[in-house]
Amino acid sequence: MKDLHDLSRYPLRLEGPDRPMVSFRNVTKRYGDLVVLDGLNLDVAEGEMVSIIGPSGSGKTTVLRMLMLERIQGGVIYVDGAPLSHMERGGKLVPANSRHLRAGREQIGMCFQHFNLFPHMTALGNCMEGPVQVLGLSKQAARERAEDLLEMVGMIDKRDEHPARLSGGQQQRVAIARALAMRPKVLLLDEVTSALDPEVIGEVTEVIRKLVQKYRLTIMMVTHQMGFAADISDRVCFFYDGRIEEEGAPADLFSNPQKERTQQFLSAVKSAD
């Protein structure tokens, strides 16, 4: 096992036209003694829509959080060919410093279960903040970009409202526009419909469907909505106990699961519906 932690085993970059947009290589994540993910290997192709399902505590949300919010304890994560969790120093990979992480994460957007919009800014202000402060766009350019995206998610009429005056579904649509305003190569959706009332889930899934079908954005989505995942994903990964227990095209995985754990999980979810 020791050689897995030898960083010289990992390439400095992933090259070639077929290289994955996101690549997890032997990634381990621990909180203290608790191993949440153990030697995760997962590649996501450019333009691919991958859904991550599984019981709570299976590590599925951690997969997204490692890309955006947390450091890893083993392995290497690559985004668009370049290492994210690590950086090159003198021909070798070393753990990334915070500047490298921030730069790498500029290519990634993330939406959260509880939206996390900035409450003191309007919908428009939320969508302009990143482009102006981080990308250095002029206010005018950022406004145009934000308005285009708010139009796309159907929130242009509410551009001047603060989040407190928007419904959950509306807030989540603004949050998606805010993430897209950074022009990310990868979008992470962390249970974006879990906190919504049933009647507004549709308005958010419609937006996501548009992103997949019209814009071919690379998306990793953690979800509890099996029907939606089956409908929209190129691939579904079932997580159990910090590992990918089973993965495949939604038609195969949902209608003909091979592993016992997958069968148990899917039938439990089905009977709950």
Binding site: M68, R102, A103, F112, H114, F118, Q133, R178, M182
Partner: peptide, 24 residues
């Protein structure tokens, strides 16, 4: 979640405090 949103937008520490955290 506000801190996480700032990280997700790659806001600098300075912008995170002056534009998002301190106003709230």
């Amino acid at each position: 979640g506000q801190w996480e949103a700032c990280t997700a937008l790659s806001l600098s520490t300075r912008d995170t405090y002056t534009r998002i955290i301190i106003p709230q």
